[in-house]
Nucleic acid binder design. Structure first.
Lengths: 231, 231
DNA sequence: CCATGTGAATGCGTTCACAGCC
DNA sequence: GGCTGTGAACGCATTCACATGG
């Protein structure tokens, strides 16, 4: 089977999230309504999942005679995308932004129902300021920053959400990498210089605003919802 | 001149941010070191900016005999991307997450030096909870949520950063749209259903983690820094 | 008819290779 | 030699069109 094209993988990712909320089968045209992606694109994407096979359709690898069954499709997408193993993550820097990811509505997206199979587990929070660590109440264990190395490697934490001030971000990132972190979601408005095997995803507010803005300008007859999370 | 391809526009966006910090000319190969994009891609992207022209290079539309001059290139990118007019934005929902965007390090990315020409102006903050509005100290004017309609339309605010709880997000979004907002950066883990002319960009933490995770899995000999902000 | 599934054709962004200038 | 600039070739994702089956 051919490798799944990157754009298709991202669509499947979103499709997975959508289907998790449904019980009934979803047809490709219904998915088109929900996402804006043409139905043939969806069918093609799904077809990448079944090791390429017979010309013409045997009806429904992933459903009966109508639509795709969430309980059949979702697990297949999950494993095709390598999301079938639980991963631990931590939050580094517990200011207003970082602490929002500990308890708040936002992490509602991490509730078990929405992330079945225990996809991600928030395993720790860190802050330089020992006061904060003690004052904040949280169901997640919090540690002072100097324990990053120890805790990250002991618990096998793979991912970090980085919310420290810009001035400290490079140093924090390096400490995390040394401790064995493999992926970083960086909210500080500073690019990181790290070994290439570390996966970094930056969320720069200024850039987000700019991407909104360039899509708001006249020169576009293009799709309006933008990558990062169409429906 | 042909329309600039979307991926090229995104690269130019980041290139702009990088060049803003430099005074000296940057060669395409230097940019390759900084971003990881091949130098010919950069040259091609830049070439989209000069209405397509003569075969062979007259040296430097955007520099002398070496590299691209930031003070020449940046304004051209900015106007090509439609970022040359100042836009006002607001923050809706001033919990931990929303309030982080008012003053904190994060909005450091919005300091005038980094966003020259007054690209974005934070014009207001809103919260349902009147207490919060009064207690929070901020250089930005804060209003109770029921004034959204009035304030947004009076000041011509075009963009909103939405940080309200999931349960309220659809209602807030509709209020904003009614008031004339044109773009929304949504942090609540819920997709919005809005008229297609409204540009929506979602930042779903779960999805961000998942995109990190799929790039951390074995099946990839691909680029490691991911869209949203390579350097 | 409706649906899915998939090879083949299309189209578009990337990459190549070379032209032109310092 | 260095560099930028750009048409043309390439390759890959999307789109098409049709096969298959309820």
């Amino acid at each position: 089977m051919t490798l799944i094209p990157e754009p298709a993988r991202v669509r499947l990712l979103h499709l997975m999230r959508i289907m998790e909320k449904f019980d009934q089968p979803l047809s490709s045209s219904r998915i088109e309504e929900l996402t804006g992606w043409p139905s043939h694109t969806i069918r093609k994407d799904v077809s990448y999942l079944s090791g390429e096979g017979e010309t013409g359709g045997t009806h429904g690898h992933f459903g009966g005679n109508f639509g795709y069954e969430p309980h059949l499709l979702v697990p297949v997408i999950r494993s095709a995308l390598g999301l079938d193993k639980e991963r631990k993550f931590c939050v580094v820097g517990l200011g207003r932004l970082g602490s929002a990811f500990l308890n708040e509505e936002i992490s509602g997206s991490l509730e078990p129902e929405l992330s079945p199979g225990g996809e991600f587990e928030l395993a720790a929070g860190f802050d330089k300021n020992v006061n904060r660590v003690e004052i904040l109440k949280s169901t997640v264990p919090l540690y002072p920053a100097y324990k990053i190395g120890e805790v990250v490697s002991r618990f096998g934490i793979e991912i970090a959400i980085l919310c420290v001030p810009a001035a400290e971000v490079q140093a924090s990132a390096e400490k995390l990498v040394a401790a064995g972190i493999r992926g970083i979601l960086n909210f500080a408005p500073v690019p990181l210089r790290l070994p290439p095997e570390i996966v970094v995803r930056n969320v720069f507010i200024l850039d987000e605003l700019r991407e909104l803005a360039i899509h708001m300008s006249p020169p576009s007859r293009e799709r309006k919802e933008i990558q990062g999370g169409t429906l």
